[in-house]
Write a protein that binds this DNA or RNA. Sequence first.
DNA 1: GTTCCTGCAAAAGATTTGCAGTGAC
DNA 2: GTCACTGCAAATCTTTTGCAGGAAC
Lengths: 158, 158
Amino acid sequence: MARPGARLAAMPRAGTESWSERAQRVLAESHRHSGGARRAVVELLDSQSCALSALEIEDALRTGRRRVARASIYRILDELERLELVQKVEVGQAMARYEPLRGENGHHHHLVCDSCGAVMPFTDPELERAIKKTSRRVPIDVAVHEIVLHGACADCRQ
Amino acid sequence: MARPGARLAAMPRAGTESWSERAQRVLAESHRHSGGARRAVVELLDSQSCALSALEIEDALRTGRRRVARASIYRILDELERLELVQKVEVGQAMARYEPLRGENGHHHHLVCDSCGAVMPFTDPELERAIKKTSRRVPIDVAVHEIVLHGACADCRQ
DNA sequence: GTTCCTGCAAAAGATTTGCAGTGAC
DNA sequence: GTCACTGCAAATCTTTTGCAGGAAC
């Protein structure tokens, strides 16, 4: 998984760097060459507020910035995950979603409407405290946690 | 020797029936015919303490009770999910897992070792209270919640 | 010139679907 | 006998891999 040092390298410097800038920097530090596909994916991810699937990224890039091959998207997302720049989120839709890891501030969890498939972010400090406490007493070294609430959204409820 | 309750056990009522019995009953109520594949899957699920993937179920049934076709397993799991007898659990291993919904008592969440892939159940009443409170204030009608803690298990930590 | 990104195509793995045979009623 | 459950095979969908061409250094 994560390489030793990757976590430190991913730490924001002065707190002034945007996620996109930090991602570009960390990528540059761990690669010899730097191509356009990675930049396109990073910039797209940074412009989103919530998780995207690989196929949504392919679609968005095809009609937008710069076409990027599907295989490259998967490879880039894999790399970003290894560097702890994005988190893979599974919300039970038969495909993975990916979103930037922006540190404490951007940390959130997900609501999923099982009817229309909408995915929305939410935050809750109290829940966060509870889960941190739980993480200390379970028999694994918890690196990340994921909470998904499933139900019917306002539009689908009626 | 007289077994107190034996008669009751033979005539299950709402609060005393096992998950397997309830599942069989609900299935019978919503189907015209009843075949052996469904029974085999339900009994296998009932004998497990944690979530199984469709392919693990196929494997376990092939070497055990009764061979069941993969397509049938997926159809049966789908049906059990629709009837709210099982919950589909996504822990980020590129395949779905399924486990019986046993109500308050059996309710639990999951620890996943990202290194070896092990999946373990855990419970936490305080976390449960926190999540119930959260569920009331989010913009969807929460039906089920899912918490997954990722990390390294004791064996993989070294 | 060398290295390594990237795109393309094929492969792999999980899940779904179509259809025919068998078993339940 | 009829209808529905089940098995088999093929199709679909997401993700991964192998390889060759081209871009970055």
